[in-house]
Nucleic acid binder design. Structure first.
Lengths: 196, 196, 196, 196
DNA sequence: CATGAATGAGCCTTCATTCAT
DNA sequence: TATGAATGAAGGCTCATTCAT
């Protein structure tokens, strides 16, 4: 459902590419998007040259990372829908996963690059659309179910999803998210008959 | 109430220092903390040398900027307490102001420096304490008033305060904060009947 | 008559700039225009940073070098006119000096840069014009004097001036030029009454 | 008359080798000898690996290219001798052809390599000798015929042959050579009466 | 004191060359 | 044998910091 780009690479090249992307994902999350490319290459166990062969410059890597993120995001949205019994539960789960993924940091990082690259990476907008669609659907259904406040739209959910939680040194992002989440969820929940 | 450090400088030196700090505040907010030092110096209308005379390195400037921020924060907390009629109102106002100030971004930026510098900048912890105290007080009173949920402590408020809101290009931070805030506030508020 | 650019620099900065330019002149002639910038900086006795402060990139240095060359060229043309008793003698001397300067190599090197930079370095065209004017004048007068063949124009002299003489390893450029020159001069000379 | 090296290669290997050499000839002339090896390989329609299998490094390719050039040169010299009715005519034609081939550029490019490689490429000196012999012969005969000035030796002709003509962007090398050539030829020609 | 020039370490990127497929 | 992926050394350029003026 989310076939990776470059599936026509030679086996070893493919595995390198995957490894680089995986590493970049981690590293960008850990140390921000300003890490030296060499650091990423080292951690991925390849030479810089290899990194640059696959991703002509930092922005290309950033975009590809974003795409991978978004792929995951879209999967997550769809999985949440499939696995949770209510739209509301799916929505909460999805928001949580976005916060844990630090979607906002990524969005900040790629924003300058996006304008240049989006056209050459049409899949980015395609996947974005996939996420947006899932979201709009979830919001509508959760409101019909009486679980989500009616004055909230997908845009506001997007804002929440891209919020960045500050973690103390040593604290895991997940822990921090799970401290904040109940507040958010409660703020989103409709108070009506269901609360009474 | 918040006497600035270096008040014993010659008038022109003092004005330079103030100008640099003011500029740094703006610039860090606008373009992140990675801006070239020369950029800050230029915008402040001084030579780099002057900047470095006042702030031995980037971290020193960051810390000083943070201190100025925190001073403002403490003032804000105290003003909110003084001006708002309820602890709850003061708390909400304070949270809002912190989000608008992008406290989280600043915290991220200075965290690495803080460990090294705190001892040489004891005022930092002092001011931090001032904020924490005000906060703890507010939280306690707001809970007694029945406005704030009882399962929330000052630490969680701190987490919320340091949350970073993602702004679309062109959107003001304040606007974004004001979209998110109602959700947060609602999530924090005690539910009358259900809480009783 | 050829006031150098940047005469308003601080004394030490000025001397560095001059030294860099002088070195670049030598180095480009010796080893082509692909030498590492660091090599030039080292030979000039400055750090790379200093080089880059004055000349934002290789092309800027190339252009500046070209300008210095052209300044010299224009001076040479004018001096030749002033010091030699005939236009013909001045012309021959000028051609010789151009060959020794390796004007052609320089022209090749800056051609790609010229298109981008000429507008920001208007002096280049200005000086070029100075040379062209002197040349046109010399050609006309030498022909009137019956020394220069009449089927030759300033353009062809330009072609000759920018010719590159191949030097054996170890041979000086000047020596090689002086071997070739008599042939050229003889080819340019009018055969008329004066030859009969 | 000029049997290519590597005639014992398999047909396809042989054709690859030829194609690479042909391409290198073109590319070096067009863009200088600093082009990326990959560029040459791509244009030749082979992988870099293939290029390196035939020519262990850039110098080897340069030498081989030079050899091909020189082969052509020797052929040209001999053809000129055979086809032209006088030594003088053959000489002029040969000089012209060398200039058009940009012999000087090639000489500059391979000079550093030649010292290292000549021993492993004995044919280089062999062919060079062939050219030199033809040249010495031509010079002698042209002088005996009273066409070539007597103060000129094969070395000076060599110098002339390796001269590089500067071409304006857009101008063909041949055109430029044909503008310069008459001057050179005239400079080389013995003067009937005045020489008598 | 203020200034801005100089320095050089460090990151980005390219490309010659090697080697697994 | 052909291919093109991987490597890493080398060069371009920037910028934090120091120091002469």
């Amino acid at each position: 459902m989310t076939p990776e780009q470059g599936s026509d690479l030679r086996a070893d090249a493919r595995s390198n590419r995957d490894q680089i992307l995986l590493t970049a994902l981690e590293v960008f999350a850990e140390r921000g998007t300003d890490v030296p490319m060499k650091y990423i290459a080292d951690r991925a166990g390849v030479g810089v040259g290899t990194l640059y062969r696959r991703f002509p410059d930092r922005d290309a890597l950033l975009i590809a990372t974003a795409r991978a993120h978004l792929d995951r995001l879209a999967d997550m949205a769809e999985t949440a829908v499939a696995e949770e019994s209510t739209a509301w539960a799916a929505l909460c789960r999805f928001v949580r996963e976005c916060l844990i993924l630090r979607l906002g940091a990524l969005a900040d990082a790629i924003e300058p690059a996006v304008h240049t690259m989006v056209r050459s990476e049409p899949r980015v907008s395609e996947i974005r659309a996939r996420v947006t669609d899932a979201l709009t659907d979830l919001v509508g259904r959760a409101q019909q179910d009486g679980d989500l406040r009616h004055d909230i739209d997908a845009g506001l959910i997007g804002l929440i999803m891209t919020t960045r939680v500050h973690t103390q040194p040593g604290e895991s992002n997940t822990t921090a998210v799970d401290r904040l989440l109940p507040i958010l969820v409660d703020g989103l929940r409709a108070r009506g008959p269901s609360a009474g």
